[in-house]
Design a protein around this nucleic acid. Structure first.
Lengths: 232, 232
DNA sequence: GCGACTAGTAGTACATTGTACGAGTCGATC
DNA sequence: GATCGACTCGTACAATGTACTACTAGTCGC
């Protein structure tokens, strides 16, 4: 935690180092390092190679810089992961629908977008559990919270509603991501399950994994949950 | 994947190597290595030191063996984690309640037990997303599935119900575990949130993190979800 | 012009990790 | 006694995160 661009030792405020310092010695090809570039490249790398694929060396390579240069912009690898995660969770506009029951649609849209966004970057689902709440996550929670509140959910019930929805979304996303994006993994899991169908007859009968209309199931469960919450 | 105790190269069936081979050269103190002992010790270590705390060397130390000896019983570290996770998720008896609406109580009991079990070993929640379904997890799903089916949920709706409940439990557990078991971490998060209360007014008002009746909130959300599912 | 300072880059070095390889030990069977 | 298979373990290596230190290039006051 030594020489950082924000020199105050206790308050590591993350303000962008708005500084033009054109082409350095590095033959002028690459633009200079910056937090944004680091995070964006980290996301690229994570998308391409998964969670294991991100190493500081590889990241530096892709940025055309030395490894240790990263550490001027970033505290450590955890930091990179935190930032990558939060950057992926940005929410672009709610596109408010009008009319009665609009809040129902609004909430569904927000949460489906949330899930979709995370599934687009499957590593994010694996990361979420162990990271703290970044600004974009909090932003999403705030928006959700406001929508529910506007829909008439009493303050006393707000937390339960919020957590229920959050839990549902996180659970669904994490689960889905855990079963692998690749069809290979999924079919392998299905096969393993089919092999033991005599031990788990009910599951086998319900074709738990074979039915891969995940999106539909997500939506249905969400509707159910929302209905339940609305009638409280 | 070379010399393993199950010699068939394609089917690595995990059968316990039931073999008595008393006190070896190792001064006769430690009992011989075995999968069970390895897994149990791994769980101990994980409980004590968390996910980062588990290294093959430390594990071997605790077992009083050489590091490489572990690799005769286990393919790799992933394997250890898989086994540790599943071992922690064993479900001891349902304690069937009688009477009408018994299934509701049964389900709540099963899921609360599930959550409680995982929170007793917080690393398990972090692990769950990236692991495949072990026998104990499947067993729990089977039981849940059977209970729901017995309660009259149609086969067509079974998957949605199952996933909804699963998602909810996993989400709640993962979230709770992610906020840290230690009060320090939690209060730190609360503080961070309070600092930015002007940006997230609704959340701040609802005292999202301050209200730490997690168990009650879990139960309430679960009831809501079950009600919704029952009225389908 | 000149020295001091700041922002930023990067090479080297090291401790820690998972695990491949191969040698060793012991009991049972021929 | 020779052989084999189950099991143990020391050595070695490559990969990783990062501390330390030295370097470069601009800016500012003189």
């Amino acid at each position: 935690m030594a020489g950082k661009h924000s020199s105050a030792p206790d308050k590591p405020v993350r303000d962008k180092p708005v500084r033009g310092r054109a082409k350095s010695v590095r033959s002028g090809q690459e633009p200079p390092l910056s937090l944004e570039r680091i995070v964006a490249t980290a996301v690229e790398l994570l998308d391409a190679q998964g969670l294991e694929g991100l190493t500081m060396r590889r990241l530096a390579d892709r940025l055309g810089s030395g490894v240790m240069s990263l550490y001027w912009h970033v505290d450590n690898k955890e930091d990179v992961l935190d930032l990558a995660l939060d950057s992926v969770l940005e929410y672009r506009g709610p596109s408010r629908t009008a009319g009665p029951q609009a809040w129902h649609e609004d909430v569904v849209h927000m949460l489906e977008d949330w899930r979709a966004g995370m599934l687009r970057h499957p590593w994010s689902a694996l990361l979420l559990p162990r990271r703290t709440l970044g600004p974009n996550i909090l932003g999403r929670l705030e928006l959700l919270s406001r929508t529910l509140s506007g829909a008439g959910v009493a303050d006393a019930d707000l937390n339960v509603a919020l957590w229920s929805l959050w839990n549902y979304v996180i659970g669904a996303t994490v689960t889905r991501a855990g079963f692998g994006v690749s069809d290979d993994e999924r079919t392998a899991a299905q096969q393993r399950l089919a092999d033991q169908s005599e031990r788990y007859p009910t599951i086998a009968r319900s074709r738990l994994l074979l039915d891969n209309d995940w999106d539909g199931a997500f939506r249905q469960g969400l509707d159910t949950l929302l209905d339940g919450l609305a009638t409280r």
